[in-house]
């Protein structure tokens, strides 16, 4: 464990450090799907766009695998968050701005 890993934030949306991800990997969460859900990164407003690849790299390094061997979780629509009011029938999206 290094102080640097504790201080380096891997997922900014959810405030999860590199160290927390490494700890989860060493507890046995060795696939990206379980790791993401257990360590609780990648589900913030950016939907993992900034952190999933980083976490995948950490996972690859820690478990001696290549990035290709580590499946990426599916991105679920909508990719960019939109206010719910946008989908209400007969309502102008601008109403809410």
């Amino acid at each position: 464990m290094t102080r640097e890993d504790e201080k380096t934030i891997a997922c900014r949306c959810e405030d999860i450090s590199v160290q927390e991800i490494k700890d989860a990997i060493h507890e046995g969460y060795a696939d990206l799907q379980s790791l993401k859900r257990y360590a609780k990164f990648g589900l913030g407003p950016c939907q993992g766009k900034t952190c999933i690849l980083l976490a995948a790299q950490i996972l690859a390094r820690e478990t001696g695998r290549t990035l290709d061997q580590i499946m990426t979780p599916t991105t679920r629509p909508p990719v960019d968050p939109v206010p719910i009011g946008f989908f209400v029938k007969g309502r102008e999206a601008d109403d809410e701005k």
Binding site: P45, Q47, V82, I84, G85, F86, F87, V88, K89
Partner: peptide, 18 residues
């Protein structure tokens, strides 16, 4: 969205994520 905002109008301004 239509059903949800009818009972809690302030949801209209909340961003949908997943």
């Amino acid at each position: 969205a239509s059903e949800a905002c009818e009972i809690v109008p302030r949801l209209a301004g909340v961003k949908l994520m997943r």
